[in-house]
Structures are given as C-alpha cells and as structure tokens.
Simulated scan of single mutants.
Amino acid sequence: MRRITIGVLGLQGAVQEHIKQIESLGHDSAIIKHPEQLDHIDGLILPGGESTVIRKLIDRYGFYEPIKQFASKKKPIFGTCAGMVLVANMLHESPDSHLNLIDICVKRNAFGRQKESFEAMLDVKGMKTKYPAIFIRAPYITKAGANVEILTTYENHIVAAKQEHILVSSFHPELTGDNRFLNIFVDMVVKSLTTITN
C-alpha cells in the first residue's frame, strides 16, 4: 500500500486525535485550514464538534464549494459525529441540510446531551470482533437510501454507513486505540486513487 495523505478539517473539533490515528497507520496527515490545501490531499475527515458552528466556519473561510468539488472528484470524505450531520442529505425535523453528500437523514444529539455520552461494543460489518465505539452528544441516522451500505447499528439505530466515497459514523473513532474504523476509510482512499489512476 502506498503512502497516502489524509487531511482533517481544522476549523473546530477533535483534530489532533484524528491526526495521531492517521499517523499511527503510517500515512501522512494534514490539518486543513485553507481551501487550497484540499488540492494536496487524498482523503478528508470532517471531525466532531458543533455542526452549526463548523458550518458557519466553512462559509466564513470559503470551504463550501471547494469541499463540494473535492467530493465531485470522488475523493473520499469521512464525517464523524458532527461531520456526519454536515454531509447528510437531510436533517430530522429540519428543513436545513449542509453539504448533501450522502443519502441519509440524520437526527442531531439523538442520544441526549453531553452527560448522556457513553461507550458501546458494536458489531461492524467486515470486522471479526466487536468495535469499541465512543458516543458524545451523538447523532444517528433515521433513514438511509437504497444505495447506502449500513455498517453497524446501536439499539436498532444506524450509527455508521457508507455510500460510494462517503463514510460516516455517529461515534468518535479517533478517541479509541482501535484503528480499524479509520482503516475502512484508508481502504476507500487507496481504492479511489487506483480508480483515478486507471
């Protein structure tokens, strides 16, 4: 596997934790603070945080169209927690949506507020043993389109999914020492580079 560069949108949220996990897998990382940096990475992570705040910062710093263009080139994007809210086509009980990159409807803060944060062992598609997921003010997916692959659920709620080059999770994979979920994204990035090259 060739070395790849994965960027983490560095406007708000758990950025450094993602950077450490990317580098633990032997790949290059970059904190993305300027839209032109998107031209130099192979995949992009939209981290957790406050989705409304991150959206305002995306608009303020001119990231909206560049991220849409990044996605239009079939370059993989991974939205975790608030990042999942940002890439969803629909938001539960809200007329608003943000980047509209994956055919899902997301309910924000679906498991409750900060004090309702929790950990759970999940059966994730493709993993032989359970995955330790950390949920913090987490959203979940209330509806997924026919072309969306459901990767795992918690209490019958969809908490991770994938559609083409977009990956999402309700939980924070960067806060655990288990890098298997990030590996799903790395595999998507490698596959996209092979497709682009060919």
Rank of each mutant, 00 (worst) to 15 (best):
F78R: 01
F78S: 10
T80V: 08
K73I: 02
I58L: 13
K73V: 04
F63I: 02
A88L: 02
I54P: 01
M90A: 12
E65V: 09
F70Q: 03
P66D: 10
C81D: 07
G62N: 12
G79M: 10
F78W: 11
P66Q: 12
I77Q: 02
L57I: 04
K73P: 04
T80H: 00
I67D: 00
K56W: 03
Y64H: 13
K68W: 03
Y61K: 10
S72I: 05
G83I: 02
D59V: 03
L91Q: 08
V87F: 08
K75A: 11
K56Y: 08
F70D: 03
M84A: 09
R60Y: 14
K68P: 06
R55A: 15
K75Q: 13
Y64F: 10
A88F: 02
S72W: 00
S72F: 02
L57V: 11
K73T: 06
G83N: 10
R55F: 15
C81Q: 12
R55S: 15
G62P: 12
K74F: 07
K73M: 11
G62W: 11
L86I: 14
K75H: 05
A71K: 02
I58P: 02
A88P: 00
F70Y: 13
M84Y: 05
R60Q: 14
L57M: 14
K56P: 11
Y61M: 01
K56F: 02
I67A: 05
F70T: 03
Y61V: 10
M90P: 00
Y64A: 15
R60V: 05
A82Y: 06
F63K: 03
V85N: 05
K74M: 09
L91H: 06
R55M: 13
A82P: 13
Q69S: 04
R55I: 10
A71N: 15
L57D: 03
N89P: 06
L91G: 13
P76Q: 06
T80N: 11
L57Q: 05
A88V: 04
K56V: 05
V85D: 04
S72G: 02
K56N: 12
K73E: 15
